[in-house]
């Protein structure tokens, strides 16, 4: 077992002892969401600004089923994954026709379409008020309504998701996606249908977003309208870039930072998105290398200070 996996398992065990269970759970959910985006952003070089489309759609469908059907949890998760994948296939089909700036704008615009649909379809989604009252039924004797039990369940989902994503990016498919990122024309010339593979990346990423969406709905017992809104899409891009889009584990680190950041600013002030925006700007302007660079800078600053101290004495 590699060092990264040991670190992650240690984090899974330690996290609920350090922070509230709900926050710990939210971190892993956001990490699953980030894994899905990073297949597009980091591995395929596609900046999707519409991941909340798939996250939110699955959250609504899963929430609706749990609320009205009393269905098996695993079945709901599976359906959420399917909803995420199918909505991503539909959106992705349009988006991969274009590249670069147009691609980013299309992912965003289609996200808005889903948002306004959810906003107006109040009989199902509850519109601005959200879809409340989503239960967490028991699963194989595990009472998921208990926060710690649900944490264990979500953490297990995350570990499985991470394992699957590792297989995906290390598979020939993952290499083809990276080839497209590095040089699309060349990948095309070698004989890979770039659009089809981009679409495939979309579908896989959408499936991960869908899983995260259903878990999110179950965590809070409500699907807020924001779950399908563009700020959510932006948040996961931010988290992933901050953690580092270059590696498999980057989005996981990003999830820690982002959830920690948003939880800490949200208790300060009711208008916390403003503080979050300020944090975005500060991080982007001064710490864009991600955490690793920030750590290096801190270490340099510290050693310079210590050396000065030595010189003065």
């Amino acid at each position: 077992m590699s060092r990264a996996w040991i670190a992650i398992l240690a984090a899974v065990v330690l996290l609920p002892m350090l922070v509230r269970h709900a926050i710990a759970t939210e971190i892993w959910i956001f990490a699953i969401f980030g894994l899905g985006l990073n297949l597009l952003l980091g591995y395929t070089g596609l900046l999707s600004f519409g991941q909340a489309t798939f996250f939110g759609s699955a959250a609504y469908v899963g929430g609706y089923l749990l609320k009205h059907g009393g269905v098996n949890v695993l079945l709901v998760l599976a359906l959420g994954i399917v909803v995420g994948a199918v909505s991503a296939a539909a959106v992705g089909y349009l988006c991969v026709q274009r590249s670069g700036l147009y691609f980013i704008m299309l992912t965003f615009a289609l996200n808005q379409m889903f948002y306004f649909t959810a906003y107006q379809w109040t009989s199902v989604t509850g519109g601005e008020d959200g879809m409340p009252g989503i239960p967490r039924p028991a699963f194989l004797g595990l009472r998921l309504s208990e926060p710690l039990a649900y944490y264990v369940f979500v953490a297990a989902c995350f570990v499985i998701a991470l394992g699957i994503m590792k297989r995906v990016v290390e598979s020939p498919l993952g290499k083809i996606l990276q080839a497209i990122r590095e040089n699309e024309v060349r990948a095309q010339a070698i004989g890979y249908d770039a659009r089809r593979f981009k679409l495939l990346a979309f579908v896989i990423g959408g499936a991960f977003s869908g899983l995260a969406g259903v878990l999110y709905a179950m965590l809070f017992g409500i699907v807020p309208l924001e779950a399908i809104g563009f700020v959510f899409s932006g948040n996961v891009v931010f988290g992933t870039l901050i953690g580092g889009s270059g590696s498999l584990y980057g989005p996981v680190i990003g999830a820690f930072v982002f959830i920690w950041l948003s939880e800490s600013v949200s208790v300060i002030w009711q208008r916390w998105p403003l503080l979050l925006g300020v944090a975005f700007v500060i991080v982007v302007l001064f710490f864009r290398g991600g955490l690793v660079e920030a750590w290096d800078r801190l270490a340099t600053w510290w050693s310079v200070r210590r050396l000065r101290g030595v010189a003065e004495t």
Binding site: G234, L241, S245, R271, L274, L276, V278, L285, R288
Partner: peptide
């Protein structure tokens, strides 16, 4: 904002404008 980020690449400039949109929108509410 944008100018210091020329070297950093488009992803970061884009995030900057996203952060600014949050700040301006919330600033309007404040």
């Amino acid at each position: 904002g944008i100018r210091p980020l020329y070297r950093a690449g488009h992803d970061y400039q884009l995030l900057l404008t996203f952060g600014l949109s949050l700040i301006i929108t919330e600033g309007i509410i404040v």
